[in-house]
Each structure stands twice: as C-alpha cells, then as structure tokens.
Design a protein around this nucleic acid. Structure first.
Length: 324
DNA sequence: AAGGTCATCAACCGCCCTTCC
DNA sequence: TGGAAGGGCGGTTGATGACCT
C-alpha cells in the first residue's frame, strides 16, 4: 500500500461520512491537536486511517499517528536528552546501528524520531567536524574512548550536585540512569550481534596501573569507571604494552582488574576543543592507539584495561558541553 | 537593524512487513 | 491464497529560530 499524499478520498468503506478533498500538510495547529487528543481519548489508538477520517482531521492516518506518537502522547518526554540517555544511545547505536525504534524502546518517553534527530544533528556533526567518517572504526572509537567517558563524567557530576542538594530529589530524578543502563545492558544480552554490555560501577579508588590511590582533579573527588564486558570493541587495532602520554593524558594497560573490564578514567575538566581532539586523534593513530583506523586486527579487551587520565585535558579534547 | 548562515526538529516520503478479508 | 489496507521504520526535507556579520 502506498499512502498517497493527495486529495483523493479513501476507497475503503467508512461509516464516518464524507471525505474532504484537501488533505492538510505541514505543522499541526492547536485545533488539530485538540481534535486528535479528543478522538484518541474516546476511541483509543490504532486504526489511524479510520481515525483520520472519523475525527474530522484533514490529515492522513500516518500523519495522525506520527503526531500522536512523537508529540502528543502523554508519556513523551520533552527537552534535552540527559547524559544517561545519550550514553545509552551511543551504546545501543554501536550495537544496532540506525535501528532507531529499537533504540527508542530502551529510552522510555523518547521517540525514534527524536533519537534519530539527535544522532544526525549532534553525533554526525562531530564526525564532520573531525573529518572522520561517521561509520568508520575511528569515529566509533572516538565515541567510546572520549565521549562516552565524558558523558559518564557528567552523570557523576549531576549525581553529586543533586545528592548534595537533595537526596530525596535524586531518588526521584536519578533512577533513569541505572534503569536505562540496565536496559542497555539487557539489550546487549539480547542483541544478536552482541558486542558487550555496559554498566556504571562505583568509583575506583586505586589507579590500577600503579596501585596507588587514584586522584582526579581537585574539584572531582572520584574517578569514573566504565566497565564494558568482553567482545568489545572489535575494531581496535593494537594495545600499547606500557603507559604512554599525550600531554597530560596517560594511556595505560594493566591486568589488575578482572578480565572483561574496560575502564576509563577521565578527569573533571571540560573545555576541550576540536583541534585538540584532531591532534590527539592523529597522534594516537600513529602509535597504534585504538583510534587507529585499521580494521585488520582485533583487540582483545579481556586482557587489558586502559587508563585515560589528566588534569588539563581541556587543551586536548573537544568541548563536550558544546558538542553534546 | 538587516541579511545571511547554521542548527534543530517536526513532519513527510517511500519502502517494507503484517494483518485482514 | 492473493490483493488491499494498516502500520512501522529509516531517510529526508523544510520551517523556524538562534547566531553571526
């Protein structure tokens, strides 16, 4: 069937009277919204073409459905995506690609359209800025190694700020983080192309590399640990065997954490810049860092843990607050 | 202040699958 | 069983507002 966006009336039988000759298009008016809400309130969802005919709306069934699902439905969330939600999107997109509706199932209140728009306007934009193919392993690694840790950092920051202001409020507003991440983890288990699961752990107290207590920037009392189980990521090329640095960012491997763990440590500084990221990216590529774009080799994450730490990373990385 | 550019997002399009008759 | 209708999904477009010069 092809829904003709034309003025031709429906051929199917209908008890809802005469059809109009002109179907409306474009932005919905308040009157149309009210009409749609009123109709669905009394008749429920579904049978969208019938709804379109019977409600008096001069819209196609598809248009009505889209308007309801993406905008009018009571449980649709409005406003910016939280860092937790962004993290889930990044994680699930790495598994499923552009399966927006499937990803949306794990983000209560968010629509596939919203997630798709987010990806196109934010994520793809960064790929363009970095001059990296959005589908490349390099870009996926950039997301995993820098942007996801940054989101985790923001989540921690928000958790700290909300806990300091009101623990009661936190229990009201924070559950989506654990909920969503659990869902992402569960989704990973269900995914046919399973590449890993994702969870947020309690802050690690020790630097796994040195065994010493790990200390981030003064304004941030705990490090962030992101554990991602094995089989992930599959594109990464080679692993450094000893710590090495870029500016104040240290890359390290160690075997002190349980196999299957994949840890990021990010400091609390923001204010990154695109150029810095590009420099970092190219530097890492020359040394065979995961940002290397070679797809021929495989990274066995079960044997390694990476550390990224520093206190003036703002000179090296993108400004995540601007990016996201 | 005005015009140009860019980013965002609601809405539409076309394809495809499922359900119904 | 096959065609029509209903509905879902990913890709794309265009209106609008923010920002810049």
């Amino acid at each position: 069937m092809r829904v003709a966006m034309s003025s031709s009336p429906s051929k199917s039988g209908s008890s809802c009277g005469e059809e109009d000759t002109e179907l409306r298009r474009g932005p919905w008016t308040l009157e149309e919204d009210t009409l749609l809400i009123h109709y669905i309130t009394h008749h429920g969802e579904g049978r969208w073409n019938l709804l379109a005919r019977c409600s008096g709306l001069k819209r196609t069934g598809k248009s009505c459905r889209l308007r309801w699902l993406n905008y009018l439905k009571p449980d649709v969330k409005r406003g910016n995506l939280s860092p937790e939600e962004q993290l889930v999107i990044l994680e699930l997109h790495s598994k499923w690609g552009n399966r927006w509706s499937k990803i949306a199932q794990h983000l209560p209140g968010r629509t596939d359209n919203e997630i798709k728009n987010y990806w196109r306007t934010r994520v793809q934009k960064q790929a363009r800025h970095l001059k990296i193919d959005e589908n490349s392993a390099k870009f996926r690694d950039a997301i995993r190694w820098f942007w996801m840790p940054r989101l985790i950092q923001k989540m921690e920051e928000e958790a700290h700020s909300s806990s300091s202001s009101s623990s009661a409020m936190e229990t009201q507003s924070s559950p989506p983080m654990s909920l969503l991440l659990n869902q992402a983890s569960q989704a990973s288990l269900e995914a046919p192309l399973q590449q890993g699961s994702l969870m947020i752990s309690e802050p690690t107290k020790k630097n796994p590399s040195s065994g010493e207590n790990y200390c981030t920037s003064p304004s941030f009392s705990s490090s962030h640990s992101m554990n991602i189980s094995n089989q992930f990521p599959h594109q990464i090329t080679e692993i450094p065997t000893s710590p090495y640095e870029f500016g104040n960012i240290v890359y390290n491997t160690n075997n002190s954490l349980p196999k299957g763990c994949y840890n990021y440590y990010v400091d609390n500084n923001g204010g990154y810049d695109i150029e810095g990221f590009n420099n970092l990216s190219s530097s890492m590529s020359t040394l065979g860092h995961p940002l290397d774009n070679s797809a021929s080799a495989h990274y066995h994450v079960t044997e390694n843990n990476w550390i990224i730490q520093g206190d003036v990373a703002d000179n090296l990385l993108c400004n995540m607050d601007d990016l996201w």
